[in-house]
């Protein structure tokens, strides 16, 4: 039913908002990835278009990549928590659950199991998308335990190395020495080893990247979703800078991402 449920009756169509109708007619629902996907961004009605993110926000770009990469957008549910990310994620034409602080992976555990009970022969993708604070600080226990329990869904951490949405406080993923709110003398320990934690906790597919290459970024997302369907938890740790809190001029955002790629976000 999943594809049909969003297609309006032909006579009803003209009363629906234009945005909705365009999504049905020109969106990625029910289409092959080769027809839509990241390579064709700009040629079809994307799942996220307008969003309230800051100018030059690298995170919003990555969120667009996530939604353009979904193998099955008409059967996907995203879950997030407080943070910048959900401002754009909630604008996507995919059901989004915004729960309490840091609870995304616990909530995903519940809904994934519920879907598997109710639709044993169908695939419904569950993806949690949250920031470094939501994943590795406040939601740490729920993130880790979902992995230990081998819950079959994808976790994506949008790591901007700071609490961007609450005004620039230090997070567990901030770099050592970073002078931020709540670390007025500089952070005195380094980034938490999220990737190693994920591997140790049993994730079957883990990627850590600065998404400078749109195809590679998309491929990682799709692999994470496919592996989560069949095998177990998957995790993508992605650098999505906060150009406001780290004072990166908009034209330099990409350069910053490339630098990160060379330093902390590569092998």
């Amino acid at each position: 039913m999943s594809l049909n449920y969003m297609i309006p009756a032909s006579k009803f169509k003209r009363y629906l908002p234009k945005d909705y109708v365009e999504l049905v007619d020109y969106g990625p629902f029910g289409k092959k990835y080769s027809e839509v996907g990241v390579k064709n961004m700009g040629t079809y009605k994307e799942l996220v278009e307008e969003h309230p993110m800051c100018s030059g926000c690298w995170m919003s770009y990555y969120i667009k990549i996530i939604f353009a990469s979904l193998p099955n957008p008409e059967d996907t549910v995203t879950i997030g928590t407080a943070g910048c990310g959900r401002l754009a994620i909630s604008q996507a034409a995919v059901p989004f659950i915004y729960g309490n602080y840091g609870d995304q992976n616990a909530m995903a555990s519940g809904i994934t199991r519920a879907f598997r009970l109710r639709f044993p022969d169908r695939q419904k993708d569950v993806i949690t998308i949250a920031g470094d604070g939501g994943m590795m600080d406040i939601g740490f226990s729920m993130t880790m335990h979902a992995w230990f329990r081998r819950e079959k869904f994808t976790t994506i951490m949008l790591d901007n190395e700071v609490y961007g949405n609450t005004g620039g406080q230090e997070s567990g993923m901030s770099v050592e020495g970073a002078v931020l709110k709540m670390s007025p003398k500089g952070k005195n320990f380094g980034k938490m080893p999220a990737m190693q934690l994920a591997i140790t906790a049993g994730c079957v597919y883990v990627v850590k990247m600065s998404p400078t290459n749109i195809n590679k970024a998309s491929k990682a997302i799709r692999r994470a979703i496919f592996a989560a369907r069949n095998l177990g938890p998957t995790f993508i740790h992605v650098y999505t800078s906060c150009n406001i809190e780290y004072s990166i001029p908009t034209p330099d955002v990409f350069r910053d991402a490339k630098e990160k790629e060379k330093r902390s976000f590569c092998i």
Binding site: Y205, A227, F254, E261, I267
Partner: peptide
């Protein structure tokens, strides 16, 4: 930025860390 990313794609230089289990590799 989008165009710049496309350009970058053509150059084909990128680096990232990827881990997968043997099962995932097969998949």
């Amino acid at each position: 930025m989008y165009l710049e990313m496309l350009k970058r794609k053509k150059k084909g230089r990128f680096a990232f860390e990827e881990f997968m289990t043997d099962e995932a590799k097969e998949l």
